[in-house]
Amino acid sequence: MRRFLKYILIILSLALLLVVTIVATVLLQNVDPKQEEPNIQTYTFADTLANREYDLDSLRAIIGDNKGLPEGFEIAAAIAYSAYPQLKEVNIDMILTQSGAPMESTVDIWSLFGLKRNRQYLILLNDAQNTFFDPILLRSLPFDAQVGILAHELGHIAYYHKLNLFQFDKWGLGYLRSDEFRAIHERTTDLMPVYHGLGSQIYQYAYFVRKDSSCVAFYEKEKGFMNKYYMTDEELSEVVGQ
């Protein structure tokens, strides 16, 4: 019995040591919430992408066959993907959901424990009916605004893909615990579409969700949150020259 208890204590001690080591490793990670302009060549898109003919097969050839396209929004999603050549070999799926935030980028947690090339990222797009978020859901947006916000979400994934497991954990802690950390990350992620040639599209999204008559009531309720964590259309106008 004593020997059994001894083994149990040893196992518990090792488990505690492992937990402490992991926590310490996470806390020691240096994670900057700010997004930086990528050092890659990107394509500059037209200010207006709506009302044009697009060949989805040609777009699929550009973005790779490891990209999921949400039903009904395939073209907008494919254009947004095409703006991120550094993500061509990265596994990403865009999924329509019936709950959650209007848009959310995340990673399959288990895929974080393997090789980076095998990671699986998800962009969850709320498509529920008759909810508080109705005015700003993807289906409610004009085509260019759809491209702009999807490019914003892909900006998150470009950031995530640079992080190792411990850095990702540190980022998550910072995002949840610090308003300043979250604001810096989200507002600089609004610049990622600009860096990738879709500045007009993210501007059109920011303008629509604040100024369109269908969104005015929603914006009046949420403008404190929206303007704190995301760039306004006026701020983006100065950046993209709209």
Rank of each mutant, 00 (worst) to 15 (best):
K6A: 14
I11Q: 06
T25W: 06
L28N: 13
Q29Y: 02
D32I: 07
P33S: 09
P38V: 02
N39L: 14
R60A: 05
A61C: 03
D65I: 15
N66K: 14
E71A: 12
E71H: 10
I79V: 05
A80L: 00
A80P: 00
Q86I: 03
Q86D: 13
L87V: 05
K88L: 09
K88M: 08
E89I: 07
D93A: 09
I95T: 13
S99L: 08
P102G: 03
T106E: 06
D108H: 12
R119W: 04
Q120L: 10
Y121L: 12
L122I: 05
A128D: 15
Q129K: 14
F132T: 15
F133W: 15
D134F: 04
I136Q: 04
L137A: 04
R139G: 09
V147Y: 00
V147A: 00
A151S: 10
G155W: 00
I157M: 07
Q167T: 08
D169F: 14
W171F: 15
L173G: 10
G174M: 01
Y175L: 09
L176D: 14
L176F: 13
A183S: 12
R187L: 04
G197L: 08
Y203I: 01
V209N: 03
C215L: 00
V216Y: 13
Y219E: 07
K221E: 15
K221W: 07
K223T: 09
G224L: 10
D233I: 02
E235D: 11
E238T: 07
